[in-house]
Write a protein that binds this DNA or RNA. Structure first.
Length: 294
DNA sequence: CGCGTAACGGTTGAG
DNA sequence: CCCTCAACCGTTACG
């Protein structure tokens, strides 16, 4: 369950314990750092703990990705992409094949040895979850789940660049990947800015609190001078894979129409504070954020 | 004061 | 279907 409310850290920022910061904030952190802003200032501006800023920047320097790592699950000890590929092949050749037959064949064909041979239940799960609809299977690039397989329900971890950014990173792969190919443009209404409701909330805040200090707004605008859609689509900080993964963050923030539920719960919970006010100003959130955490 | 990082309590999901 | 457990998370506190 996505908790509707987060907790508030010492800086007044809202976070969800155990869950990664929204990609928009991660992106912002890296962007600000590249502008020469000191980590401590980024931390204060975005109200993210300096430890987190430090961690995200370190990871970015190491992997070139702003994305969090893959949470949960076990590393595929047996169900490696290769194994999955073979299983699919077997299934394609013989749609009626049983899981235990597949298991035998994996062993017989030398795809697996007895130590990494998937269990029958694992194979069943693979058949069910990863191979499900064979007829319209697209190719499964082994080891690179970067292009969303047509799955019914993308796991949360689908957001993450699992294999590439996970490895302790050989020096070669660090930095920005060469392929900047942009596979799709963000629809404007789905820009991260909009998704996260920054602009709308900011506007809301303005209308809600007439005494809103404009200097603060400018401050925020300065931070926010590139809107996130542009940033996400064009920023060199986001590599192609990241872009692909950024989008499903809609799960965090976006609902199809009107942003009623989870969006606002996450956003209004303050994951992205509408403007960088000092903590003592925070209570004004209440006016625009009905779902204010307690 | 700024920064790196260990400890901590938390979530997640493959096996 | 449920449990386990190792992966990751961000915050906090310490050096």
């Amino acid at each position: 369950m996505e908790p509707a409310f987060g907790e508030v850290n010492q800086l007044g920022g809202v976070f969800v314990n155990g869950r990664p910061l929204p990609n928009a904030i991660r992106l912002r952190i890296v962007e600000l750092a590249q502008l020469g802003i000191r980590p401590c200032d980024i931390s204060r501006q975005l109200r993210v703990s300096h430890g987190c800023v430090s961690k995200i920047l370190a990871r970015y320097n190491e992997t070139g990705s702003i994305l969090p790592g893959a949470i949960g699950g076990s590393k595929p000890r047996v169900t490696t992409p290769t194994v999955v590929k073979h299983i699919r092949t077997y299934k394609q050749r013989d749609p009626g094949i049983f899981a235990w037959e597949i298991r035998d064949r994996l062993l017989a064909d030398g795809v697996c040895d007895k130590f990494n041979l998937p269990s029958v239940s694992s194979i069943s799960r693979i058949l069910r979850n990863k191979i499900g609809n064979l007829s319209q299977q697209s190719h499964y690039e082994s080891g690179k789940p970067s292009h969303a397989p047509p799955q019914p329900a993308l796991p949360y971890n689908h957001l993450y660049s699992y294999p590439s950014s996970k490895v302790p990173t050989p020096p070669g792969m660090a930095g920005l990947p060469g392929h900047m190919a942009m596979h799709r443009i963000w629809p404007s209404s789905h820009s991260v800015t909009d998704i996260l409701g920054i602009r709308s909330i900011t506007e809301q805040q303005i209308s809600d609190s007439p005494s809103f200090p404009s200097a603060k707004l400018e401050e925020w605008s300065a931070i926010n001078r590139t809107n996130f859609s542009a940033a996400a689509a064009c920023s060199p900080l986001v590599n192609a894979m990241d872009k692909a993964h950024l989008e499903p963050e809609a799960k965090y923030a976006q609902t199809p129409s009107g942003l009623p539920s989870t969006v606002n719960s996450y956003v209004t919970a303050g994951s992205i504070p509408p403007y960088p006010l000092p903590p003592q100003c925070l209570p004004t959130w209440g006016t625009a954020a009905p779902a204010r955490p307690m």
